[in-house]
């Protein structure tokens, strides 16, 4: 009797949490497959005819999807690299600091804890296309980097400049915190012995710091990449995908297909394809970094 109870125990403890995952993640995953194979009519009591793979084959010739995929990739590439480099740089600076570590750590981390909606609206306002937009004013009238105010948010490229800047600005602190922790876990005696051998700062970084950071770089880049692929709020708040859908991202396209055009079937097919791409990419990326060590190890 006691044995049986002992056996049942873990299941009983798993069950309540599992129910949540089952209802809100597992079932929806199965139901997404079903929806994606139909011409889903969202009106109740209306037929939802089987469509086979037509939703999927439509993706191939959907230029808007490919454009949004390209946009998403560019955004991910730019912001992930930007966050990693600047985050690492700030972490290295702070790590070598004697006074004010806590202060700077907090300041750089501030954007990370601020709501996406708030910072997106803030950047929309800062990048306002008129001469009285704050960024225009700074670049034009204070630093004289440009002669004329830029219409940031009415052109695709400059809109992305604004959205990318936001993505990097908000994420530096996150990368910085993690690199800082990784830097502090590198044993000091490694440096000391190398210094005795006459290694300069750059050599120390190249031969000790960087190799020690590789697992962290791998995990951070995967996390940032997954985050970058999900970016929706900045696009929704700042450009709404415009002009002419040129700043559309895959997730915003998925969302609008479902909730503006009410085409749930096609939107679900897009989601499946996109989730597979993201999943495959993050696997590949981990492999490229030489193994899942960083994940498994502490």
């Amino acid at each position: 009797m006691k044995q049986l109870k002992e056996k049942k125990f873990p299941y009983l403890f798993i069950l309540p949490g599992f129910l949540f995952l089952f209802v809100w993640l597992i079932l929806p995953m199965l139901s997404a497959l079903n929806i994606s194979l139909r011409n889903w009519n969202i009106m109740p009591n209306m037929p939802k005819p089987w469509a086979g793979l037509t939703n999927y084959s439509q993706i191939l010739s959907d230029s808007l999807f490919w454009l949004s995929l390209k946009n998403t990739f560019v955004y991910a590439l730019v912001t992930v690299i930007g966050q990693m480099i600047l985050g690492l740089l700030v972490a290295l600076l702070i790590d070598n600091l004697i006074f004010g570590k806590v202060f700077f750590r907090a300041v750089y981390y501030l954007p990370v804890v601020t709501s996406w909606v708030v910072v997106s609206l803030l950047f929309k306002f800062l990048f306002n296309s008129s001469p009285s937009g704050f960024i225009n004013y700074l670049l034009c009238n204070v630093f004289h980097i440009i002669d004329q105010p830029v219409s940031w948010l009415t052109e695709a490229n400059t809109s992305f400049a604004a959205i990318d800047t936001l993505g990097i600005w908000k994420g530096i602190g996150f990368a910085m915190i993690i690199f800082l922790a990784a830097l502090q876990s590198i044993p000091q005696d490694l440096y000391e012995s190398a210094e005795i051998d006459g290694g300069g700062t750059i050599a120390l970084f190249r031969y000790i710091t960087l190799p020690a950071l590789v697992p962290t770089i791998a995990t951070v880049s995967v996390m940032l990449l997954i985050g970058a692929f999900q970016t929706y709020v900045p696009v929704a708040m700042i450009t709404k995908g415009g002009p002419l859908h040129r700043t559309e991202m895959v997730v915003s396209y998925i969302y609008n297909t479902a909730f503006t055009n009410l085409n749930f079937g096609y939107s679900s097919a897009l989601s499946y394809v996109f989730a597979l791409i993201v999943f495959g990419l993050s696997r590949l990326q981990l492999r490229a970094f030489g193994g899942q060590k960083g994940i498994a190890e502490k």
Binding site: W24, L27, Y232, I254, A258, V278, S282
Partner: peptide
């Protein structure tokens, strides 16, 4: 934990 959260929003809404 690693899945994009937006990818299930349609069936979650239906749920």
């Amino acid at each position: 934990m690693t899945m994009p959260s937006m990818s299930l929003i349609v069936p979650q809404f239906v749920m």
